[in-house]
Design a binder for these strands. Structure first.
Lengths: 144, 144
DNA sequence: GGATTTACTTATCAAATGATAAGTAAAGAG
DNA sequence: CTCTTTACTTATCATTTGATAAGTAAATCC
């Protein structure tokens, strides 16, 4: 296997993934929040509850800036903090009901666009796609 | 096929792709340029020569801002403008020798990290990966 | 029990980015 | 030949983002 060729395919592929996700998520962001704030909500939608440190590590964003943006999201009633019983320094952060609703709506719009994108794909091809997602997730795009 | 499940895998997958590409491209950006400027150079590396309008459409970024950032890149001697003979309103933009060198170096560092990431993968699995990239590129992540 | 580390906050500052208004010059349309 | 459109520039401004310094309070280490 020529790994140089594989790398070129990899680069082209990741570029396409970025383009397509940009297209799918275009305009789903409520105009009351900034892009960075959306990315926090998106992270929470998948990984809640999360501590501030986790969010800061994963996005990635410095602790002070993460703290600031979470405060703003809190002021907009989109997420909430909860004390952690075992360690009173920590705080779990969750989407509020409102935040959850906003993200549900966003994901629904993205899903609709996604389904449009794969409409007309045969059952066989869909299974190939699912397999391919699994292969790449486990072999290439795993976090370490 | 449950398309809902497929969508969930799709979302998780694109998130991973973003995380991994962030990791691979971390610190390859020269500290003399901003992230937006890097994205312009990256676009040029793949699609040069390009007009300002093309860059503006694809990135996406307003014309005035694209113009400003290209001027800054020009001042840093990373890209150059050429008149288009057929239409004197247009200008082709290309990486300069210096800009090309910077991007080559960046891509080399990314490739090195990529190869580390897939080191120890069997020949058989590598072929599976290549196949999976092809499947997803053609069936899901093609541009509209 | 004092020192250190962890988790997070507050405040402040500079730089990057996005948006808009107002221009120039060339091309194309009628 | 004038009018409109296209391609791009310049200037300006507000907002967002990133980075750093300095703090609090709780947990952990020795």
């Amino acid at each position: 296997m020529d790994k140089q060729v594989l790398f070129q395919k990899f680069v082209a592929f990741t570029t396409s993934v970025h383009e397509v996700t940009d297209e799918l998520t275009k305009d789903v962001k409520s105009d009351t929040i900034t892009p960075v704030q959306y990315s926090i909500l998106e992270y929470l939608a998948v990984s809640q509850p999360a501590t501030l440190s986790q969010i800061s590590d994963c996005l990635p964003m410095s602790m002070p800036n993460t703290s600031r943006e979470l405060r703003k999201l809190g002021e907009k009633n989109l997420c909430e903090k909860f004390d952690v019983a075992e360690d009173r320094r920590k705080q779990y952060i969750r989407l509020s009901k409102e935040g959850q609703a906003m993200m549900n709506e966003a994901f629904q719009r993205i899903e609709k666009r996604f389904l449009q994108r794969i409409q007309g794909t045969s059952e066989e091809d869909l299974e190939q796609i699912e397999l391919a997602l699994d292969v790449l997730s486990s072999r290439v795009f795993h976090s370490r």
